[in-house]
Design a binder for these strands. Structure first.
Lengths: 149, 149
DNA sequence: TATTGTTATACTCTATAACTATA
DNA sequence: TATAGTTATAGAGTATAACAATA
């Protein structure tokens, strides 16, 4: 006898629908990334390092909007798992240049396939063009939010 | 000289774009709700109680997917601010029936106007029909995530 | 003087187990 | 025995201040 309560007053807001959809994605994604020993955040950071060889910790932090102190433990975790390597920069000996290892590349590719399958599950019964339109709208929203930090 | 790093490998995923858009929304929304002394979660709970007079704490928790223990402090906060009242149920003396107060109604309406303005800011330069399409897609994604908890 | 990475710390959000009072 | 609300607590995730090494 679960009384059927309403949330119409919140459903009119895109933010409410965004949060609920993101919660659903997050739960499924974290479960499927766990098989690769990764979390959402470590998967993202590993992807960025793979795509930008030699990037610094502060570069990853800026790109993914993570505070530098919080970056440290993420990088530590990836390095201890031997998925990335930290090399002192020749030009600036304060900084590290981050690169993905061969082990990291294998693990990332495995995780990537899992994420692709996860996305297919979450986007079931939705046309590719509708997903593309949604992503376009989401990027405009993200862009509208910048410059107001 | 902020090197211009790439995140193309993540932009193909709807989840990544969803998270970034939600982060942008969350930051702006919390800032604009603070003027009403509310947060995202207390605004949502207050809206649900307004829309479902007499709803129980467990009903709100189920609807908004919040654990019951975490609900307690939220309800405490709203009651102490005199925005809602807790009445013992006549039929089941374990439960509370939650109702919004006149003060709560006024505060909610004020916050609602702020949220409407916030949504207009975040959705600037996006056609209403595109927002509606995005919400529809988001609801399908949310629905695809259910039944897999 | 500013910046990279670091440490310590704190605050929010979320999740679980166990209790109480009622049913 | 099961449920509504509660307490205590622990784990993420996130944010700020201050430091050492280097620029």
């Amino acid at each position: 006898m679960t009384k059927d309560h309403k949330d119409d007053s919140l459903r009119i807001f895109s933010g409410y629908n965004l949060k609920r959809a993101f919660n659903a994605i997050q739960m499924d994604l974290n479960a499927c990334l766990a098989q690769s020993g990764l979390r959402m955040i470590t998967f993202s950071v590993l992807s960025i390092i793979d795509e930008n060889p030699g990037i610094r910790q502060s570069g990853v932090a800026e790109l993914l909007v993570i505070e530098r102190p919080n970056m440290v433990v993420i990088i530590d975790e990836l390095e201890q798992a031997m998925l990335i390597q930290r090399d002192r920069s020749e030009q600036d000996r304060r900084a590290y240049e981050l690169r993905i290892t061969d082990t990291g590349k294998t693990r990332l590719e495995q995780a990537r396939q899992a994420v692709i399958q996860h996305e297919a599950r979450m986007c079931k019964d939705i046309a590719d063009s509708d997903i593309a339109d949604m992503i376009s709208t989401l990027r405009t929203i993200e862009s509208n939010g910048l410059g107001r930090s």
